[in-house]
């Protein structure tokens, strides 16, 4: 992929209390020749923002913690104002690999589709803990029912959006339910989408930092309330 094309690709990372991991995530992305890394420090009380800036990312700071959905929307708005052609959402805890980005970005860059969603289950790559797999299966079924999109994965934070899709995106579910909201808005937009197999590393750090299974109850509640009340 030529450098000129990569300059239009903005990798947006929402980070909350990720000081131990964020610098290496940013450095790996820059080293893999993705020059535009935007970290939205979502009101962390640790050195997340400073670490990200020192590692070479563009850092935006929420003065109050507003949740991952809110932080991603901030990063996306910023990237669009900076002339992004493709926006990639990437997790801050190191569970995603920069190696997956070319396969994610290319279909959007060449105009085949407007949305590429990363999937843990296409091609059986990576080992997903069984309890998480069961939960994700239920989430996937729910997602099919609410959005009409038959995806193989749910709530995977690795995605690529075209400028067109990103401009239409309006995430109002500030916390974790935004991942379902995003899929709904993709379905509603009618723009072409595709799933691409990605690897998700369930490292000890990511598992300790990540959502517990029971958090799904809250995500579900946020989603239902958000859908009903707008």
């Amino acid at each position: 992929m030529p450098s000129a094309a990569r300059a239009g690709v903005f990798v947006v990372i929402a980070a909350y209390r990720e000081a131990p991991a964020i610098a290496s995530v940013v450095r790996e992305l820059l080293a893999a020749d993705w020059p535009r890394v935007v970290v939205v420090d979502d009101g962390s009380d640790d050195a997340t923002g400073a670490e990200a800036a020192a590692a070479g990312a563009m850092v935006l700071r929420h003065v109050l913690n507003r949740g991952q959905g809110a932080a991603l929307q901030t990063g996306i708005a910023f990237a669009l104002r900076r002339g992004a052609r493709v926006i990639v959402t990437f997790d801050a805890d190191g569970q995603h690999r920069p190696e997956d980005l070319p396969g994610l970005v290319a279909p959007v860059l060449c105009g085949e589709v407007d949305v590429v969603l990363g999937s843990r289950f296409l091609g059986h790559e990576g080992a997903v803990p069984w309890r998480r797999r069961l939960l994700l299966r239920a989430a996937r079924q729910f997602q099919r029912w609410t959005s009409g999109l038959a995806l193989t994965d749910a709530h995977n934070g690795l995605r690529a959006l075209s400028e067109r899709m990103a401009a239409r995106l309006c995430l109002r579910m500030d916390r974790m339910a935004h991942a379902s909201e995003l899929v709904d808005q993709v379905a509603l937009s009618g723009l072409p989408w595709r799933e691409v197999s990605v690897h998700v590393a369930y490292t000890d750090y990511a598992r300790a930092k990540g959502q517990r299974g029971w958090a799904a109850v809250r995500v579900l509640r946020d989603y239902v309330v958000g859908r009903l009340l707008g």
């Binding site: 700071r61 507003r66 901030t74 109002r172 009340l229």
Partner: peptide, 22 residues
């Protein structure tokens, strides 16, 4: 309901502040 609306407005403010500062 009022609380929800307020939360959404706070998010918009926090977002605009973050972008304006950058």
């Amino acid at each position: 309901m009022a609380q929800r609306r307020l939360e959404q407005q706070v998010t918009v403010l926090v977002r605009e502040l973050a972008i304006a500062r950058s």
